[in-house]
Design a protein around this nucleic acid. Structure first.
Lengths: 247, 247
DNA sequence: CGAAGTGTTGATTATAGTCAAACGGTGTGG
DNA sequence: CCACACCGTTTGACTATAATCAACACTTCG
């Protein structure tokens, strides 16, 4: 089902070799599939030639597929090679809270406890590397480089979580959306932002409803702050004014 | 101004020796004072007798005093020995967003960048230990124990930030307050919670107004979910029902 | 006692949520 | 090829919730 290859840890960067990515059809038909590591099996894991301490498995997921579920035992943490992943939690009243969107190069699924506190799903077809991780015990004394590496990752996860909390602390829907668009826009150098996720995803991330997201974007367009050539493609016409809304 | 003493790092716990805490009057008069490390100077720093890699300074702050400001150069991270500290940010429209309340044993001020992204202030009179920290470079290869220690701290900061984001994702004021009270209540074993912070602090933490906080607590009391013997003392009369509101 | 800070309550308004309908692409099957 | 259904999205009308503006109560402290 999934292609498997070797990856390795090097200094503060996690590198995957021979990713073996195969394209997948958009619009995955089914709701759920077996967790990644079950589906992919364990074949192909080996220490790399350069003797780096941690090897990873390259895995592919179709759009909408679950990578792991809330409550699953933690076996690995993950790095996004391509595509976008969301981490989220479901509340008992049926709502979904999206903790974050994780794009290329970003880490998700890092936990200290024994089980995942959130589930992770592919927003688009995506390729991720799973790094075996048995919690803090993996940070044995002899592997200081690895400790530093993983520490760095933990800190960037921490800072993203903190920024998300501050984003959610914004007063109005307009402020939240402006901050969201600028965050996405900031990743590329031009002012074109394309949204990998649906309005529902955005709403669940910003703690708004889909209607409010849609209305606010339409208002931004009427105010010439953005252009919406299509619903998933946003052009920041006036980033300065957007920034003014935010801070 | 501040008493100074030695502290040290040991395994995953940061321990302060000879804290030399002196009580201070509640209700600090002035708005701000010089940052801790300026006020306290550098005297008293030394390697401990047991040869632990990191020594800390014990510092005391009166209620309302600033520990560091947003934008300050990072010299240290901090552990709360007693009292409560808040970390927060101010938005250009004058609002304040509280990132978190940090009680006894908790860490704050850990950053990867060169400057603090938030400011920290004493909610009550408090005693904190400042651990010198020059960022990732401090995690040199020979200090694996320290790397593991600091990694553990980073992860707990991360998890708290993530929980805060999910808390802010709650729909209603009642849900936010119920989650907040249960979080505070969970720290002790009984159902008595005393609030170190003002209604304004709570409002800024939950992204609500002071009036909504007050009204919601009054409503909880009318519904026999809590008792409010005084405004800063809450008794959770029906924690099960509160939990039901949250999840 | 009076002043200042903190907290509560009431009346009104602004904002976003809810319910509902319609629009626009995309893919399918006749 | 077109008709159709489906999904994500947009828009409208109405409502619920919390913000705002305002007044008042309670504590602490000088």
């Amino acid at each position: 089902m999934h292609s498997v290859a070797i990856a390795q840890v090097f200094d503060t960067d996690l590198i995957a070799t021979s990713p073996g990515v195969e394209p997948r059809a958009r619009r995955a038909p089914a709701d759920r599939q077996a967790p990644a590591e079950t589906g992919a099996g364990n074949k192909g894991r080996a220490a790399s030639a350069t003797g780096m301490p941690l090897a990873g498995q390259v895995l592919n997921f179709g759009e909408g597929r679950q990578i792991y579920a809330e409550g699953d035992t933690v076996h690995s943490f993950y790095k996004v090679m391509s595509g976008v992943v969301r981490t989220c939690r479901f509340t008992s009243d049926g709502r979904r809270q999206i903790d974050g969107f994780h794009g290329e190069g970003e880490i998700f699924g890092l936990e200290t406890g024994g089980e995942h506190r959130l589930s992770a799903e592919a927003v688009t077809d995506c390729c991720v590397v799973a790094y075996r991780w048995s919690g803090l015990s993996a940070l044995a004394g002899s592997e200081a480089d690895m400790a530093r590496t993983v520490f760095h990752l933990a800190m960037s996860c921490f800072e993203r979580a903190q920024e998300h909390a501050l984003l959610l602390g914004r007063r109005s829907a307009a402020q939240k959306l402006a901050a969201f668009l600028l965050d996405l826009g900031g990743r590329g150098s031009d002012n074109a932002v394309d949204l990998a996720m649906t309005r529902q995803d955005i709403a669940d991330y910003l703690n708004l409803t889909i209607e409010t997201v849609s209305r606010t974007l339409s208002q931004f367009e009427r105010d010439h702050l953005i252009a919406l050539p299509s619903s998933r493609h946003v052009v920041l016409r006036n980033p300065v004014a957007l920034r003014g809304l935010v801070d």
